[in-house]
């Protein structure tokens, strides 16, 4: 079974290799009858029986008309997928236990695409329309249970429009991936092995962004506290600027993986919670992961760097 799955996956990636943008075309789209389609055929057969047995020309005519409609809807269903462009957008990082959300942009051509279903294999589908000359963004979510970098599965895109008796479908790999941070676990600060004080003293550090001493303005970044925005400048239409302060604390907060107890994942989780907490408090800190040291620093970029390191931490076995 699993060998078969592998073979199938390999076949798919040979046929439709991972690409950020896919314009559905002949080589992508498959079309097969649905259950409703088989039922439709059975109903037509019954109608043909009536036509034959009663030698009724109109019954023949209607049977043939509907048969022709059924055949024709192959073209219509196929057309309702052909030319549609799927673009995989970068997914935002998330934490273990959350749903990773993969944004996908659907771009129509000069045709309107109706009732396009998108979803992971064997799961419920999102259905959306894409009006002509426009685009539509949808998000597929996937529950993630492990930290690290995860590639998204192949996405099934299908449509049964207009009659529901055929389904045109494809499986595309939009080369999307998501970074999953460890699940944050709150633990008391003392137990968390924050090595503050003696061995972390590095003199008066003014490198990191702090809260104490006003240093100047810096462009606002996502994640920066709104409390420090220079609203005066913003109201004058000069954009969002952050007031910069230098931290004048003598001691630096350091988060150290080795100083913690418990298994690796637990330790990473605790560190994760601390990173989030310290960033929110705007306390500069550094992160020590075995040989790797990040910081000291504070702010969104620093937080992202720390969390990424936690997510991708591989020295687990030796820690």
């Amino acid at each position: 079974m699993s060998a078969w799955r592998h073979w199938l996956a390999a076949w798919w990636s040979r046929r439709l290799p991972a690409q950020t943008r896919v314009k559905l075309g002949q080589k992508h789209i498959f079309i097969v009858p649905t259950m409703a389609g088989y039922a439709f055929a059975a109903a037509l057969l019954l109608m043909l029986m009536v036509a034959i047995n009663y030698q009724n020309s109109l019954a023949y005519a209607l049977t043939f008309l509907l048969a022709s409609v059924g055949l024709l809807s192959i073209l219509h269903t196929w057309r309702n997928l052909a030319g549609l462009q799927l673009i995989g957008l970068p997914a935002e990082a998330c934490f273990v236990g959350e749903n990773a959300r993969f944004p996908i942009r659907l771009q129509a051509t000069r045709r309107t695409y109706q009732a396009i279903g998108l979803g992971w294999l064997r799961q419920k589908m999102l259905v959306t329309d894409v009006a002509k000359h426009s685009e539509q963004q949808v998000e597929l979510s996937l529950a993630v249970k492990r930290r690290g970098k995860h590639s998204a599965e192949r996405i099934r895109v299908e449509t049964r429009f207009p009659l529901g008796i055929w389904v045109a479908w494809s499986q595309v790999d939009l080369a999307q991936s998501v970074l999953v941070y460890p699940k944050p676990i709150e633990a008391p600060l003392e137990l968390a092995g924050v090595a503050a004080g003696e061995d972390a003293v590095e003199g008066l550090a003014t490198a990191g962004r702090g809260v104490d001493d006003y240093q100047g303005l810096e462009a606002w970044q996502q994640g920066d506290s709104l409390r420090r925005v220079n609203w005066k400048a913003w109201s004058k239409g000069q954009g969002l600027w952050i007031k910069q302060f230098a931290e004048l604390k003598g001691a630096q907060t350091q988060l150290n993986f080795s100083a913690l107890g418990g298994d690796v994942e637990y330790r990473l989780s605790v560190l994760c919670a601390q990173v989030l907490k310290l960033t929110q408090q705007e306390t500069p800190f550094s992160l020590q992961l075995l040989e790797q040291t990040i910081g000291p620093g504070t702010g969104a970029a620093h937080q992202a760097e720390c969390l990424t390191a936690l997510a991708l931490f591989a020295g687990a076995e030796h820690g």
């Binding site: 023949y60 043939f64 008309l65 509907l66 048969a67 022709s68 409609v69 055949l71 024709l72």
Partner: peptide
């Protein structure tokens, strides 16, 4: 769709 189906239906009607 019904209109587009007419030619094929006509053929079937005549030749079936």
């Amino acid at each position: 769709i019904l209109l587009q189906a007419i030619p094929v239906a006509l053929l079937l009607f005549l030749f079936f």
